[in-house]
């Protein structure tokens, strides 16, 4: 076996405005062998996370009836795998609820089996 068969992946660090261009080298087993380009530890940690298990918090809106606005802003209670983000939004595009709602109310439980709930990010009273 050779350690030479490396594949390099590029990332842009979001840790601070410097925006270091990070490179992650992976060997043929898929293990990280080297991280380059960071200017601090934070960058290294970010590169590792982004390479092995990228996650995102999702914010979007769902339809709401009877409130001041026809849309209610929501977010996932935690970060979900990055490759599930579009699917998550597709689910949420089909959700319609009824006012009133309070900030923190759970709109969808365990979204797509990610373990994250979808919660309202504001109150929306029922308009009379």
């Amino acid at each position: 076996m050779t350690n030479d068969e490396r594949t390099t992946y590029a990332y842009l660090c979001i840790g601070c405005p410097l925006g270091c261009r990070l490179e992650v080298d992976e060997d043929s087993h898929g293990d990280i062998v080297e991280i380059r380009g960071s200017s601090c530890r934070k960058g290294d940690r970010y590169a590792e996370q982004e390479h092995t298990d990228p996650r995102r918090g999702v914010t979007t809106t769902v339809a709401i009836d009877g409130g001041l606005w026809p849309r209610l802003p929501v977010k996932t209670s935690g970060e979900i795998p990055k490759d599930r983000v579009l699917a998550a939004c597709e689910v949420l595009r089909r959700v319609r609820i009824e006012a009133p709602v309070e900030m923190g109310d759970v709109i969808v439980h365990d979204l797509l089996g990610t373990g994250c709930d979808v919660v309202a990010t504001r109150d929306m009273a029922r308009m009379t």
């Binding site: 842009l12 660090c13 405005p17 925006g19 995102r56």
Partner: peptide, 12 residues
């Protein structure tokens, strides 16, 4: 914009 937004709003 912030690099965070470049990554999470465009690259993603």
């Amino acid at each position: 914009g912030l690099s965070r937004n470049i990554v999470q709003c465009l690259h993603d």
